[in-house]
Design a protein around this nucleic acid. Structure first.
Lengths: 250, 250
DNA sequence: GTTCGCGCTTGATCTGGGTCAAAGATATAT
DNA sequence: ATATATCTTTGACCCAGATCAAGCGCGAAC
């Protein structure tokens, strides 16, 4: 639970108000704009497993993840589900200009979100082009991430899929903690095997087997079920089938 | 199916010069703006199989597809490839604000594109917020399409994948041709079996087998290798596993 | 015409990952 | 301490789709 605290401390520095600032861009927001944001801001907490919003529901806010993990999921009538987005701290949620949610948003861990009432936020976007501009950049990043993931889903083996997911989480986790890059990364896996499976288009049994295999082969070390050490990040990327530095998943 | 008809009327209007107008939005462009667009416009033609731009290359234009089909593809070192986007006539290509291409853009059929020099186009975006706004909308649409496709890639069977792809192409094709509506759709499949496979994360043999199976079962009719008749679109959607009217793929 | 080439189909066989089933680990509640 | 529940691991078996291989159809080049 230290991690959660760390996250909060880390993010509380600049997460006060502007969700855009989470992405370290809204130095461009002047005090007047920040003032306006403050007035339409509120926080919401969710427990792991809770649904933040159902697909099709009217969406009355936008916001960003302060701590914890949320996921965007799609479900077919027969129950097959696929996560289509992983929302880590600092990621933006919601669609200015869209009436209703296109996906279920689910709290995958305990979750705190910083929300803004949608209408006024949209007005702010209209008034301040650089916020709209920033939103376009973020959307393009998300699109790249989604397409990157299409390669993972369509063409990678189960082992490569697991390695890809671990590398993404390791990278993001490390960057939040200002850690890493000395070759060794340590982090707590914030997803259950089932959540990993839903994200990778696998079954939880296959996930479990492949994680065990990566452990056996020394690609990762594993204490308990969730605490992971990656002795050689380059090796992990190789296992993921990433040429060079791919995997910009957001 | 009313929505389908709306789409049709929508797209048929024109695609003369403004790439944004392709999406039937730039009624908002005034004559001055169209004038500016005309000055930075040029056309390019490609033969089937040609590469429009390689991943990583510097991108000096944005534009949209006038006729033919282009695809965005990713390739791993060992040759596995995955299409991550299908660009049909009226679709936009390029990233204002991005230096280099993130994917290979390949002409899947003979292709004509309407291009705009990137720098001036970006300036136009800055000057006219509604163009930037429109671009955000389009990017959000693409993101939805990509996520829709993640479900296809991650959780659908081969037969469902084929049906999903056919329904997307049928819908788009019909809308371009002002055709259909009597429950029966007729179109020419513009993709080889291999291209379909690359899009669906399958092998070309599996694609061929499943197309044959759909034919055998009367879901589609097939003259020659490419000419397809869909006697009952709702049936096709059912085969695709789409609840309701899903599949908004762009 | 005949031959070449390419896209497509179909068959035979193999295998990665799914499915079904059981049991081990932790954690929280009684 | 025991019980209940959730998450995870592992084994045995199966099947959808991959792989390997052969042949078909048809347009273009000779």
């Amino acid at each position: 639970m230290n991690k959660l605290k760390d996250d909060i401390l880390h993010l509380s520095q600049d997460c006060g108000n502007c969700p855009i600032r989470h992405r370290a861009v809204c130095a461009r927001c002047d005090s007047d704009e920040l003032e306006r944001l403050d007035q339409i801001k509120y926080y919401r907490s969710f427990e792991a497993g809770q649904t933040v919003i159902w697909s099709g529901d009217r969406m009355e806010f936008v916001g960003s993840v302060v701590s914890g993990i949320a996921s965007l999921t799609q479900t077919m009538e027969d129950g097959r589900t696929q996560m289509v987005g992983l929302l880590l701290p600092s990621d933006f949620v919601g669609r200015p200009g869209r009436e209703s949610a296109a996906y279920d948003v689910v709290a995958t861990t305990d979750l705190v979100m910083c929300c803004f009432r949608k209408k006024p936020f949209e007005q702010l976007m209209v008034d301040t082009p650089h916020v709209a501009q920033r939103l376009l950049e973020m959307t393009l990043d998300e699109l790249d991430a989604a397409r990157e993931w299409m390669l993972v889903l369509g063409r990678k083996t189960a082992r490569e899929k697991i390695a890809s997911l671990l590398s993404i989480i390791a990278r993001r986790d490390a960057s939040l903690k200002l850690q890493g890059m000395q070759g060794q990364l340590v982090f707590d896996l914030p997803l259950t095997r089932e959540a990993m499976a839903d994200y990778l288009g696998l079954t939880l049994e296959t996930v479990s087997r492949q994680v065990s295999a990566l452990k056996r082969d020394g690609v990762i070390q594993l204490e308990g079920k969730r605490h992971i050490t990656i002795p050689d990040f380059a090796r992990l990327l190789e296992e993921a089938g990433d040429d060079g530095d791919g995997g910009i998943m957001v």
